[in-house]
Amino acid sequence: MLLQLLSRFYFFVFDRLICYHLLKIYSAQFKIRFMNLGYVNDNDGAVNNAIRENGVEESEAPHIGLYEKTLSLHPQYPSLNDCRLLEVGCGQGGGIDWINRSHPSLTSVTGMDRVAIRDSIVTGDAHDLPFKPSSFDIVINIESSHLYRNPQLFFDECSRVLSKGGHLCWTDLRFDGDEKQVLNQAEKAGFKLVSIEEITDSVIRGMEKVAQRYDQILLTAPWYIKLFGDTFRKTYCAPGTEAYVKREKRYWTACWVKK
């Protein structure tokens, strides 16, 4: 029990104080623009068409697949015309670049993260979104909310910044059964579920592709990054790590509409 708590604390500190700050410094050098685990599904025509039509580097295709899969649950997809989109937890900004490219009819695409490294991104907190009410028509949140100290506050804030009829497109992992908490939190925040889908198998295929690339990057990284090599591998759930082997978590994507 104590070891589990210490391990959780270590990963909390690693995420907040080491991982994101190292990425801020090295993301350009190692061409890391995405931080999600990826999504690969050969039978998903909508996602694969979007990737094919927009010409994507093979190494980024799984990450982009997860963005497109998440957006594809929006009832108007792929025509997201005239919508103002906010990505909460946009990381290095690869996702907002992709969305700008693949959905040029959006009115605006804004990113927000605790660690922002470039323009078009606002530095802010997912629990206290620094935007006025009804500023957006779509909020997208990819593989980020499991890190939030209070997911209910996050859902409340998403509801506040969305206009009535706006959509929250969300993807993340949870321990088996905990997805019910997510559904409750979203409902309590004033959302009505449009659809939810379990995509664990496709994300595992994505993880395998992503891990191959990141393992290669780790081999050429400076020694002080290699020091955290095992922790980084656990972060991206590389084959052989506990998370990959045990598979205690399921991966979900969902879309809600603001009532």
Binding site: R84, S108, P130, F131
Partner: peptide, 22 residues
């Protein structure tokens, strides 16, 4: 930062702030 982004920003999350806009 685009002025379009400025159009959405608010400091309403601060203590004792009601709208924080613009």
């Amino acid at each position: 930062m685009k002025l379009l982004t400025h159009n959405f920003l608010s400091s309403r999350f601060l203590k004792n702030v009601t709208t924080g806009y613009p």
